[in-house]
Structure formats: structure tokens, C-alpha cells
Design a protein around this nucleic acid. Sequence first.
RNA 1: CGGGGAGUAGCGCAGAGGUAGCGCACCUGCUUUGGGUGCAGGCGGUCGGGGGUUCAAAUCCCCCCUCCCCGACCA
Length: 617
Amino acid sequence: MSCPGPAGLNSLLVGMQWRVTSPAMRMSRLFLRTLRDDPSDAEVESHKLLVRAGYIRKVAAGIYSWLPLGYRVLRKVEQIVREEMDAAGAQEVLLPQIQPLELWAQTGRDQAYGPLMFKLQDRKESEFCLAPTAEEVVTSLVAGELSSYRDLPVNLYQIGWKYRDELRPRFGLLRGREFLMKDGYSFDVDVDGLRANYQLMFDAYHRVFERCGLTFRPVVAQSGEIGGDVNHEFMAVAAVGEDDFVWCQACTYAANVEAATRAIRHTSSAVDADGELAPTATPSLAPLGDGVPAMTPVHTPDAATIAAVAEQLGIDAGVTLKCFAFSFAGGALDGRLGLALVPGDRTVNEYALAGVVAPAKAVPLDDEAFAARPDLPRGYIGPHHPDVALIIADPAVRDRASWVTGANRAEHHVRDAVLGRDFRVDTWAPVAAVVTGDSCPLCRSPLRVDRGIEVGHTFQLGTKYSTALGAEYTDADGAQHPMVMGCYGIGVSRVVAAVTEEHHDEQGLKWPAELAPFDVHLLALAGKGEAAVTAAAAAEQLYADLVAAGVDVLFDDREASPGVKFADADLLGIPVQVIVGAKGVGRGVVERKIRATGTRDELPLADAAGVLGGVRP
RNA sequence: CGGGGAGUAGCGCAGAGGUAGCGCACCUGCUUUGGGUGCAGGCGGUCGGGGGUUCAAAUCCCCCCUCCCCGACCA
């Protein structure tokens, strides 16, 4: 039996009509099944539609297979990311997804991540994890390769699968346990260098998300697990987002709700530069309690939440005073009790509270701690408790003359608690979380709190990892310094879902041009008789012409009724639909429908491929 | 991890002691041909897994697995 040489093989392939390079596809051969019903386990539109349209299929909780259409979109996002990273001077690498746990122990993050990591052992029982991220691997890589200031800066990135054993995977691709992430890491000689690289990445991220068609905002954020200083989250605005962020409608201020602050209103003059109550402010304070009756207890059975108290007493939550109890850890007040006071319709921002008590820590009381302190009845705590070392109050606590609050006695609250008369405040600080309508700290315009999907995150890491893993360089004077690092993530697979959340309607998906799995969806409407045969031939010819013109075209050549084809086309969401039917072909035209807008027009059949090829991005 | 719900055909669901059904999808034929056509006939199931009760278990009991929702320190 003879083996075909290259030429023979080539002719064999041609003979089998294999198109190795063409991105075009006949729908009759596409690995695709669309579903008429929503999958029962999907809750958000992106999940429902991506499954119904045959882009993804679930394999396990938070783990998905990417089918041909979905994988095309995923690769388009990848490509945009790649282009913008390369343009910004970053270099692509590929780091392992299986990483030795030993490496993580060197930074202590094996403990910090804990059960969030998928862990595994090899046959020798050495411990590994599936990469949740790659700071350790990339830092130790760079530590081994570079040692001089002459080698820096360097900026490496990869696009690879990441694994996090989430407490609760949900919303399809939005919170998966396996997800595709672009993670990048910059190494500089100093903070100025880091800032320059950070700015390059920050700008590149804008271009990436703009090209993906997302409405987004970069917001100042807390640093979370990774550690470090300045960082931004890129939030795609979406009702199904899992994070609140605050933004100003008049200026550029935007922050994660945890990091957000607000301008203190008319009471701001009562707080001096140290956050202490200024003596000069007391004139406005003194009259507050005038004429308020003495504080009186009320029986409030089974009302351990603000909402329950408000309902039982027929009052607004805003007239209640919330007392958030915590114990100090470290510092002069170690082990003592503290209270944070905010109006009942607000919540305590624990990050803000942490900032106030730093360097000591404020540890919220847990079930055990409450059980050990019968004098602190959960849900019935009041600010006049005798054993509180420090009371921190939000300035909004000065906005009311009197409050309804806990009585420090189970099943009881008190009315008419007056600041200065019935309870004291030791420290004033804005520990209440920002809500819509608060004033912007920069321009005092109204702030909004919205939900978003975190599609990107940029960090200025500093030297935490370079120090731990020995990524040091020698400067011009021969001195050793740790490299100054930044890291930059984009949730590539999450972007696919985020874009879907923003671009869809009841009929299905609506891909932005740069992400669409195909540029054009060519529909050949079936029919009977000579006109239909002519139309079918015209569709075939147009398909060939579009392929020749370099258009990525999906050709619906199936034997199906027009309704089925229209419905599937709208579901799949390819930006331009071109409909070839007997009626139009008889008049020498085809119809073009823009999926996003529903706009329809006609193109001359003879010229259609040229027109469509010309508008290709 | 706590609470709730659910696993029956590829998808969506019904069936609650007597040997498994509907819609969609799929296959065959006819029909229809510009918005998920209609008719007829088919294929397809260890009823999540294991154990138990019973003459008989998808159904009752026990254990396990998986999936979904809510919560997981705001008093």
C-alpha cells in the first residue's frame, strides 16, 4: 500500500472538499443544536441564551464545554486582548495550570486561598493545585531569568484556564469554577516604572472593553486576596452583577462600594481633620435633644432585625440606630468591645471600619461570641451599653434628634435615645456604606450605586511577591532590590457572558461586530418550483462569492422552513442576516437585516458579496 | 458550611405501590414554503446510584451522589 506524498495528500483533501483554512461554514454541517426551552438550571439571560443557542453546554457545576460557535466568540475576545496587550508592549507566555503547592507555601497563599483551590497529588503524593492565578509561578520564573536593572522593565501575560472551587458557582459563565483568564504581570525597578506600566495596562483595558462593546467603568477597589496598594476593578454595568459599585454622574469618581466614600453633608463641619467631634460644632448638637421625652423601653418580641423592629413599631428604618458590635484584636483595646453606629437604613462598611481602628482589627462577633455574652443580646444591642470601650459613629448619626435602638435586653428596644444625653460617641468617622443619593466626595453631585460584573482588575502589587520569591535585581551601583510588580487580569470567558447580558433581546443574542462568531448569516429560504431552484442556486453562488471575498459567513443551507431559519438566526445573533428567497431573487435582490437594530434593506444580488465584503470590519 | 427544592428520553415536564407518559427535538412518508407549518407513522428510558420493605417499587424506608435556589457574621 502506497503512502501519498504531499501532493497526493493535498489532492485527497481537495477531493474530500475539506476546507482547512476557510472560516465559513454550512449550517447543515455545523455541530449545533438550538433549544426551544430555557435550560431549567439557568437563571440569568446570558446563561439561558448561550445554552439555548448552542454556544456552551454544562459538564458540571461551574464547568462548561465550548461548542463551535461559543469557542469562536471566546477566541475573538482572546484575540482582542492579545492585540491590545501586544500593542502595549506585553509579551505572551504560557504558564502551567498545574502548580506545585510548595510554591504557594512560599508566599503563604496556600493558606490564604485555602479551600478555594483545587488540589491534587501525583503518584509520589507530591501536592499540586490547579492554577487559580499565577503570581508565584511568574515571579519565580522572572527571578530565575533576570537579575539586572538592564533587563527591566518586563511585562508578561498569558491567556489560560484558571480554577477556583467557588463556594457557589452560579450564573453560568459569570461565576464558574473553570474560566479563561488573561493574567499579566509587570516587573519594574521602582514605583515610577510600575506606575508607567500600570497606566499602559489601564489604557489598554479601556480599549479591550470598548472593542468588546461593553458599557463599563473602572472603579477604585479594595485589594482583596492578592494584596498591594492601588488597584482598579473594571465593572461592566449589569443588573445581574455580583458587585456593587459607586459612581458619580457628574465627574469621574467611581469606586467599589467597599472603597467608596461620600461627602459628609451639613454635619461635616462637626468633624475636624482627625475625624474627632470638634468642640465648635456643639451648638448645633445641643438643641438636638431638647424637648425629647426620656428614653423609654418598648417590648419588641421577635424583632432582632431592623426591618422587624421598624415593622412592629410602624416606623421607618431610618429612624432606628444600628449598633454593630465588634471586638478589638491587637492594639491598646485588645479584647475589648467596640460599637459602630449607623442609621438603621444603612449598613456598616467594614472596610471603612477597619480603616478607622487600624492597626488594630475590628472582629465582628460571631455566634460563639454572642453566646458567651448574654449582656449583648443579638438584635437588641443599644449604644448605652456600659461595657463598650469605644463607640464609633457615622456623621449621619447626628442627623436625628432621637433614635429607636436596642435596649441591651432581649426582646426590648428603646425609644427616644438622644445623642449626648443617653449615649456617647467617642469617634466620628464615615463608617456607613455609601447609598444612592449620597454626595460625591469630589464634586458633591449625587452618587449612584449600581451593580456590575467585574470583567477586569488591575493591581499595583509592589514587592510582596518579589520579596517572598527572590525576584531581585542589581542596580547600577551594585545594590540588590526587589522588583516592583503590577498584575493585571481580564476574565475572558466572563466577558463573553457580560457582553451577552448587555446585548440580547427576547429573540436571542446580538453580538457586537468584533465578537460575533461569523460576520454574516446567509439564509437560503427553501421553496418549490423553478423560482425556488433559481433562488437556491443564487444562495449557493452568493455563499461562494462571500467566501471568496473573505467574509466569515454562516450559510443556513438546511432543509427547514423559513420560520425555523429566522428564529435560529435571531437566536444565534450574528450581526448581519442576508436572506435569499424566491421573491427577492426574482427581482434581482436579497434582503439584509441588521440583528442589533432590526433594520432591513435590500441589496442587488449581483453586487451583494461586494457590498458585504466591503463593510467587513 | 447551614436551610430549602429537584434528579423520569437529547431539552422542558407529568406520573405518588400493579410493570412509564406528554410537548419539543430526532427518524420515515406526505404536506407547507418570508417568522419555530400540518397530518400520519416511528426510534429512543438500568425512572441519579446502592441497599431495604413488598407477590409487586419511578412511587414507601435508609444511605450516598449530583444539580438548583437562599443564606453564610449588618445585630
